[in-house]
Structure formats: structure tokens, C-alpha cells
């Protein structure tokens, strides 16, 4: 039962983390967009698309030149999920070894 619970919990935790990087983080950025962006007047040519006001990313919130939200989104959904997947595989390898005795 101990290995069963380990399997279920590690799977649940990994799934939740991967779900955040793979979908919910995008939603969070939209909901909290003022934390990542500054309100500025819209350039005249863009008013038909964005109205009188729009947002640009906060310059101080950048990593390697990229906006923080963009960098996090691409890195978490690439390197982040690869690492999570590898951790899950290692745990499952161990459980499988114990199952086989």
C-alpha cells in the first residue's frame, strides 16, 4: 500500500505542476496582467485594435532580455516539464523494481 500511495501522490503532484505550466500559468498572467505590464497610451495606429490604452511589459521584469512572463512560459513548458517528467520516471522506475521484487 505504501508504494501505491507513493505512485498516486507523486503522479498527482507532478500532474498539478505540469498543468500549471501547461495552461493555468497562461491564465494567471491574463488575470494578473497589471503585475507584469504597465499601462501606456496606445499609439494612434493601434487604437482600432487596443482602444485608447494598452500595456507594455515592465522593463525591470526581464530575464536575458525577455519579458518575465514570456521567459517563464517558454522555459517552464520546456525545461521545467522535462525535469518534472524525469523525476517522475525515476520514482516509477524504483516502484517498478520493488513490484518485480
Amino acid at each position: 500500500m505504501k508504494d501505491y500511495k507513493l505512485e498516486v501522490w507523486i503522479t498527482a503532484i507532478c500532474f498539478m505542476v505540469v498543468a500549471v505550466t501547461g495552461g493555468f500559468f497562461s491564465s494567471i498572467v491574463v488575470l494578473l496582467n497589471e503585475r507584469f505590464f504597465d499601462a501606456v497610451p496606445t499609439p494612434e495606429a493601434l487604437i482600432p485594435y487596443y482602444g485608447e490604452g494598452m500595456y507594455v511589459f515592465k522593463q525591470q521584469l526581464s530575464i536575458m532580455g525577455f519579458p518575465l512572463h514570456y521567459f517563464l512560459l517558454i522555459m517552464l513548458s520546456w525545461i521545467g516539464v522535462t525535469i518534472i517528467g524525469a523525476i517522475w520516471c525515476v520514482v516509477m522506475d524504483r516502484i517498478e523494481a520493488r513490484q518485480k521484487g
Binding site: 498543468a19 501547461g22 495552461g23 493555468f24 497562461s26 491564465s27 494567471i28 498572467v29 491574463v30 488575470l31 496582467n33 505590464f37 501606456v40 499609439p43 493601434l46 485594435y49 487596443y50 494598452m54 500595456y55 507594455v56 511589459f57 526581464s62 532580455g65 525577455f66 519579458p67 512572463h69 514570456y70
Partner: peptide
């Protein structure tokens, strides 16, 4: 290093598409 110039010429490039957040959950 090209991002600052991009931000000047296309200021909205990195701005998230402000659609209802459930759109992103649906994609997930």
C-alpha cells in the same frame, strides 16, 4: 537583445491576448 527594439516598434508584441482565462484552460 532584440527585444528592446521590438518593444519600440511593436509595443504590444509580448502583451498577452486578453481573452477570458478559461480560453487558456480550454487549451490545456
Amino acid at each position: 537583445d532584440m527585444v528592446p527594439l521590438m518593444s519600440q516598434i511593436v509595443p504590444h508584441y509580448f502583451w498577452p491576448m486578453l481573452v477570458h482565462p478559461v480560453t487558456y484552460i480550454a487549451i490545456f
